[in-house]
């Protein structure tokens, strides 16, 4: 007989909830609806793959510090992989976003899936922007001095100082990646939970349009 004290434990409750919401066949599915057959679906997984590359190349750059790549051939190459990972990431993400828009992918209780994806996109813009500010070269100087006016005009410049390299670097390598990765995790979990949105169809019987 189950001990009621165990049943009331937070850990037990959480485990049962996770098990109920995410059975193994949802987390690691081996089938999917037959309508999921288009090249547009590729861009979601490509975005995730590019994000893996962005994080990996960023971590590689972090090992030797923010200015190493200016004086090392290997460092410069790794910086190039970081840049191109970001370009591929945004390319894939923008197509993914437009594709999902034209599929009206928020239908059927999937609005949170859409919103977490959209906020991840906006967060990624911030992450990329602070990356450009952290290059420690002419480009980062120029972008910082130009961007300050826009950000100051919003009032945010009083706490988010784009001319402060140390602050921007910390936002780039800690805060914004944490937010972006957290949102991405929630986004993917929601996709697994709700599944891929079905095509537009006729109004089912029993409902009125």
């Amino acid at each position: 007989m189950t001990d009621p004290r165990i049943e009331r434990q937070w850990t037990t409750r959480l485990r049962k909830r996770v098990e109920g919401t995410f059975p193994p066949e949802k987390v690691l599915p081996d089938t999917q609806p037959s309508y999921v057959a288009s090249w547009i679906y590729v861009f979601g997984v490509l975005t995730l793959a590019a994000l893996v590359m962005v994080i990996a190349t960023g971590c590689a750059l972090a090992i030797m510090g923010p200015t190493w790549w200016h004086v090392s051939g290997l460092g410069h190459y790794i910086n190039s992989t970081h840049l191109w990972s970001v370009e591929v990431f945004f390319f894939a993400m923008v197509i993914h976003l437009w594709g999902k828009y034209f599929m009206a992918a928020w239908r059927g209780g999937r609005s949170m899936t859409w919103m977490t994806g959209a906020v991840t996109f906006l967060t990624s813009i911030g992450a990329a922007f602070t990356g450009y500010l952290s290059q420690t070269n002419f480009d980062s100087q120029w972008i910082a001095t130009q961007a300050k006016d826009g950000i100051n005009a919003t009032g945010a410049g009083s706490v988010f100082n784009v001319l402060n390299l140390g602050q921007m670097l910390m936002w780039h390598i800690v805060l914004l990646p944490l937010v972006a990765l957290g949102l991405t995790a929630v986004h993917v979990i929601l996709v697994r939970k709700r599944g891929v949105v079905p095509p537009f169809a006729d109004v089912p019987e029993g409902v009125v349009a």
Binding site: L28, P29, D30, T31, Q32, P33, S34, Y35, V36, A37, V42, V45, L46, L48, A49, A104, W106, R107, G108, G195, V197, P198, F200, A201, V203, P204, G206, V207, V208, A209
Partner: peptide, 29 residues
């Protein structure tokens, strides 16, 4: 009968499924 908004609601799929190897897809990507 309940109201139906085609831009909000969806008839969840009860049709056929096809094989899908999510690990292989992720690795290839």
């Amino acid at each position: 009968p309940t109201s139906w908004n085609p831009d909000v609601d969806v008839a969840e799929w009860t049709g056929t499924q096809r094989p899908y190897d999510i690990i292989k897809e992720g690795t290839i990507a």
